[in-house]
């Protein structure tokens, strides 16, 4: 793994994108690593496009401010590809992970991804509805991210999904999110 990996999350207010960035940071603490997770604070409205960021490094992270050149771009809502420039600043070796039912090849075209960039898709909303009855995609997105990047072990991630949801939700919802995380890991496809 590179010394520092930077992730940018695109989602819509109320989808749990910020929570997902937090869960990932918590999980990545393992192995003595340094982490950052923070959203971009603006007017906080349900449904509005939001961005959140992660940095994970083997060294102390001193850089503050938004991630400008994300190695990983997680797009939790495919309609954002029409609304904003989700590829902005992404380097040649960037990885895009999109929540969509569409074929990865079609998404690659839509994104205008370069040949050196990788595009993955996962039907995270559908998985979420099947696992816990709500179209909240980010547990599955987390599963897909760790599959594609190997940034952290599944056990560490599941433990932190459990911890995060355990504070607020019933056991059924927690179990559903754990299943969704595992299915995101298994069902992510490359295009």
């Amino acid at each position: 793994m590179a010394k520092t990996i930077e992730i940018r999350w695109h989602g819509r207010g109320g989808q749990g994108t910020v929570t997902a960035a937090k869960v990932l940071a918590d999980a990545c603490l393992s192995g003595g690593r340094y982490v950052q997770a923070f959203p971009e604070y603006g007017p906080e409205r349900a449904g509005a496009p939001i961005r959140a960021f992660n940095r994970v490094s083997e060294h102390v992270i001193r850089m503050y401010g938004p991630v400008l050149h994300p190695k990983v771009v997680s797009i939790a809502d495919a309609t954002l590809m029409d609304a904003i420039n989700v590829t902005e600043g992404a380097p040649d070796d960037a990885i895009f992970i999109v929540n969509t039912s569409k074929d990865p090849k079609e998404v690659r075209e839509k994104l205008g991804a370069r040949d050196t960039q990788k595009v993955f898709t996962v039907n995270a909303s559908k998985i979420a509805v099947e696992c816990f009855g709500k179209p909240l995609p980010n547990s599955s997105m987390l599963g897909a991210i760790i599959k594609v990047t190997g940034i952290v072990e599944m056990d560490a991630l599941l433990e932190n999904v459990k911890k995060s949801f355990g504070k607020k939700f019933a056991q059924k919802i927690i179990d559903g999110n754990l299943d969704a995380t595992k299915r995101g890991y298994e069902e992510v496809k490359e295009g």
Binding site: A21, R33, Y34, Q36, A37, F38, P39, I61, G65
Partner: peptide
């Protein structure tokens, strides 16, 4: 400490 930049960022 810097508002939001540090107060609301998660770090180690």
């Amino acid at each position: 400490m810097d508002g939001f930049i540090v107060s609301h960022s998660i770090e180690r």
